[in-house]
Nucleic acid binder design. Structure first.
Length: 951
DNA sequence: GCGATCAGCT
DNA sequence: CACAGCTGATCGC
């Protein structure tokens, strides 16, 4: 494609993107110029002081383009989105392989694509650019940029694209030239200590061994292996299985095309002839849904097995989301002759590797490229991510730069290479950094005992350094140091570190990272004595039950190096720090708790909580007027924090009483009892609840009996414990004529359940509703609508049905409209309500089992029928888990016809009826309009709803 | 009428 | 939120 490279073999290829671009568009207009890049441009996609955009093809509009030099790190759509056959905005620089994919698969006009060689510097627009392998998918590269500055030196930037760091990268001499670079733009996909997964080799070994083992057990052509992959990526598994298991791999035509482009064609590893192989590549979600937790699709697999005439089927899902890892075994789900192996195979760096990389590169700054909101300039998330590397970046160099700037008298002297090319954002960041350092300096001067590194040229040596600070200051420093270190570091170690660093925290931190391994081994050798000393160290902590103790504290000292709450060795730490806990209330020095928590937690962590706790939202649906006689039910109302702070002081006692009464669904008559209880537990609501629910003398059943969703009446799950689930069997369409006076909100039974699917002009909201105006709206009204919506295709039809559904609500039970909207949109209350349930799939299932009594086969039927209940395992729960379960049991027992299905889906937060805000709101609006001729005040309701929803 | 973007699904 | 990507509906110029 490029003949330019042949010009001289010895000289570095020099390119000019503008010229290349003009040639590409066949224009002789040499006056091409670009507007300044706006300061709002996502920092993770722009190389400072250049017009180089990385993996960013959609941020310039048709009217304004900022650059002719685009870089694409690899061929995944989330990185090339914005590219299309009509691309014409600039030259795309990428690896050779990626260029082939762009041209052949994406049909990008070839003259806009400029492949660059690997490990071979070229100069683009005056900047040296080097592509090195990223160990991601085929063709994926990292970009190394050397940007000249005015004073004749270079700024160096590493953009990793998507990358899995491996030790061999340390051997790359080009990358070595970037040690101490200015910025690393880092693939932070798995930047959280909870992401622990093995090397790719281990995972490949595992797959190979399973294929070998089962392949031998089932000689001949009886077992089918399926490997889930996507378009480009994870081929290493396939190639290795082929090579080591001596089998070909079957792929479909489309995948084969891609593999041919990637150069796998000649090896005869892959075949499009199904009969040649019993190892088949399948699409991403064929073996099961992967989110929010893995749910195998045994039904589909069985179909495939039978269709293709096999007797056993073994699936592999190579995923970075390690749903669970058992002791050196990967998770396996199986059912009959089907098994699915969840293999933690990742093409992104895990947490340790990320830290390893940054530690190796010692950049002055880390810019995360992956994560929500990451593109925003003020992304809190980005800051959070950045903190994971606080101890590893070269802060000293930052300080030095800054102070040097002062020395020269103009720290702003480092000018842009091109006019206006540098976005303000960078300057802002610089300023921010400088400001931080200033703040730090002021802290230092106040303390008079932290000094800048001696190597700093403007550093004035401070003889006080080695002076031993007062007891109080020592404590403070140890705590401060703790903020920067992993949690496993003991107090003794910290003391050692800090005193041998002349009480300089920064130095102590960097010392720590130089000896991290030794220190870690030290404590693993003396684990018991460690925890003992740790327990002693944390004496400042009041004793609270482990459940209540916040194992993690937020950190102060934001102005120094942001705290690093990393934990690189112990395999899994939770890193959720609620930083909005006010410093005054923050628990100090809870290292000991953390340590303990980690130990007791680690098992849980690795086996359970990777299955994301489904924080579904049930409970009170916007109880505007909490007076409502206490019928408003919440299953449980938790603060947003995962852990209740000990002795939660944020609530007054009275508030707690009210909250408690709400939780137990009690009324004023129970107030005295509640006061008593809360006094006994010193205001600890959780403990009070435990007592409440474990006390047989109190009749909770009364409270549990009527579980309703809204404050007053609205969608009612009326309960009667004697209507077991089996009721579901006969409640399909034809059984609705059986009235049951024990149920509240009982549907009027002479109404066809499919009436909402009538066209809006035929639908009569009142006559066609399944209840009357003096009754609360039954949930079955929603459930039926959901079912119809789910069985239909097309948004228009869904909108019309939802509209009809709302019209009935508006006409008969306007107060139920809002709850209904929440239910439709898969929420239980507005976002700001902060209601969480913490109900996981297993909880729902076990509740289901209970509701069904001993009849397990029924549950299996329902499981097959609905496919929503992935977990059959029963959890032994804590008090609160039991309580939630009880509530769910009661809900389920009260279910009628379709209610069950959608209740379960709601509980596991996966309604999947295809009705999102965008569908629900127009339907509601339409319903309001259609009803407004009848009753104008409803309009106000709708407005109010919209306001509330928009919060 | 076109491409860009979004919702939904796999 | 989210390891990737396709499709069809809607938005917006």
């Amino acid at each position: 494609m490029s003949s330019q490279g042949t010009a001289t073999a010895t000289k570095t290829l020099a390119l000019d993107s503008t010229q290349l671009y003009l040639t590409a568009i066949d224009s002789s207009d040499s006056t091409l110029s670009f507007p300044p890049i706006p300061s709002t441009f996502p920092p993770s996609k722009l190389i400072p002081n250049t017009r180089f955009l990385v993996d960013s093809f959609r941020h310039s509009t048709t009217t304004t383009t900022f650059s002719a030099a685009y870089f694409l790190s690899h061929f995944h759509s989330d990185h090339y989105s914005g590219l299309s056959p009509s691309w014409s905005k600039g030259i795309i620089f990428c690896s050779h392989l990626t260029s082939l994919l762009l041209i052949q698969t994406l049909k990008i006009p070839p003259h806009f694509v400029f492949p660059l060689p690997l490990n071979d510097p070229v100069v683009v627009d005056g900047c040296e650019v080097i592509l090195i392998d990223a160990n991601h998918c085929p063709g994926a590269v990292q970009f190394l940029f050397k940007v000249p500055t005015k004073n004749g030196s270079f700024e160096r930037y590493v953009h990793t694209g998507d990358c899995r760091y491996c030790n061999s990268m340390k051997l790359n001499s080009y990358l070595n030239d970037f040690v101490g670079c200015d910025t690393i733009f880092l693939d932070t996909t798995y930047c959280n200590p909870k992401f622990v997964f093995p090397s790719q080799e281990e995972s490949v070994d595992y797959v190979v061994s399973v294929v070998d083992r089962i392949g031998k057990e089932f000689k001949e052509k009886k077992v089918l292996f399926l490997v889930a992959t996507y378009v480009v990526g994870k081929e290493k598994i396939l190639v290795e299985v082929a090579r080591r298991c001596k089998r070909k791999i079957f792929v479909d035509g489309r995948k084969m095309e891609i593999l041919n482009v990637l150069g796998y064609g000649g090896d005869k590893v892959f075949t499009v002839d199904e009969s040649e192989s019993n190892v088949h590549v399948v699409g991403w979600n064929v073996l099961g849904e992967t989110w929010p937790y893995f749910r195998p699709n045994f039904v589909r697999m069985k179909e495939i097995m039978e269709e293709k005439g096999y007797e056993k089927i073994v699936g592999f899902v190579p995923t970075g989301w390690t749903y669970e890892i058992k002791r050196n075994k990967f998770a396996v789900r199986s059912k009959g002759s089907i098994e699915i192996h969840l293999v933690p195979y990742s093409e992104h760096s895990n947490y340790d590797e990320l830290r390893e990389y940054v530690k190796f590169l010692k950049p002055k700054r880390v810019i995360p490229t992956v994560g929500m909101d990451i593109e925003k300039l003020d992304s809190k998330h980005a800051d959070k991510l950045r903190r994971h590397f606080a101890g590893l970046v070269d802060e000293m160099a930052n300080k030095k730069d800054f102070l040097m700037g002062f020395h020269r008298g103009n720290y702003g002297s480092v000018e842009k290479v091109e006019m206006d090319a540098s976005p303000n954002s960078n300057e802002n960041k610089d300023m921010e950094r400088k400001k931080n350092i200033l703040e730090m300096k002021s802290v230092e001067s106040k303390n008079a005992d932290i000094t800048l590194n001696d190597s700093s040229p403007v550093q004035k040596p401070d003889s006080q350094d080695s002076a031993i600070p007062s007891e109080e200051e020592r404590e403070r420093k140890i705590e401060e140091l703790g903020d920067f270190l992993p949690r496993w570091v003991t107090r003794d170690q910290k003391l050692n570190l800090i005193s041998s660093s002349r009480w300089n925290v920064v130095e102590a931190v960097s010392n720590f990272y130089e000896h991290e391994n030794e220190l870690y081994e030290q404590i693993s050798a003396f684990r018991t004595s460690d925890s003992a000393s740790a327990a002693q160290a944390g004496s400042s902590n009041n004793s609270v039950s482990p459940l209540n103790s916040g194992p993690f504290r937020s950190s102060s000292h934001e102005s120094l190096i942001s705290h690093s709450s990393q934990a690189s060795k112990p395999s899994s730490f939770k890193l959720s720090v609620r930083s909005n806990i006010s410093p005054g209330k923050r628990k100090k020095n809870t290292e000991n708790k953390s340590n303990k928590k980690v130990k007791s937690n680690s098992k849980l962590e690795s086996s359970g909580s990777k299955q994301p706790m489904i924080t579904s939202f049930f409970g009170k649906v916007l109880v505007d007027d909490s007076k409502g006689g206490g019928t408003g039910l919440k299953i449980e109302e938790c603060p947003k924090e995962e852990i209740t702070l000990p002795g939660d002081l944020t609530k007054s006692f009275t508030e707690k009483i009210d909250q408690f009464i709400q939780i137990i669904n009690g009324n004023e008559s129970s107030r005295n009892y509640v006061v008593n209880l809360l006094e006994k537990t010193q205001g600890d609501i959780n403990r009070a609840l435990d007592i409440f629910y474990s006390n047989p003398e109190v009749n909770h059943d009364e409270n549990m009996e009527n579980i309703v969703v809204s404050s007053k009446s609205a969608p009612v799950w009326s309960c009667s414990n004697d209507c077991p689930v089996s009721k579901n069997e006969h409640v399909l369409e034809e059984s609705r004529s059986i009235p049951d006076s024990s149920l509240q909100g009982q549907p009027v039974e002479n109404v066809d359940v499919t009436l909402v699917s009538l066209p809006p002009d035929k639908y009569k909201p009142i006559e066609h509703a399944c209840w009357r105006s003096d009754q609360p709206a039954p949930y079955v009204h929603l459930a039926r609508t959901f079912d119809l919506v789910g069985s239909q295709r097309g948004k228009i039809k869904a909108t019309s049905m939802l509209c009809n559904m709302f019209r009935s609500l508006l006409a008969l039970s306007p107060e139920d409209v809002l709850p209904a909207v929440y239910l439709c949109t898969n929420k239980i209350a507005a976002d700001h309500e902060n209601i969480e349930l913490n109900i996981g799939g297993s909880l729902v299932t076990s509740a289901l089992e209970e509701a069904c009594g001993t009849n397990r086969s029924k549950i299996r039927d329902m499981y097959n029928d609905m496919g929503d209940l992935a977990f059959i395992s029963v959890q032994t729960g804590s008090g609160s888990t039991m309580r939630k379960k009880n509530l769910i049991v009661n809900l389920i027992r009260s279910c009628r016809e379709k209610e069950m299905k959608f209740l379960v889906r709601t509980l596991v937060r996966n309604l999947r009826i295809g009705a999102m805000m965008k569908t629900v709101l127009p339907a509601l609006a339409q319903a309001v309009v259609m009803n407004s001729s009848r009753d104008l005040c409803h309009e106000g309701t709708a407005d109010c709803l919209k306001e509330k929803l928009q919060v």
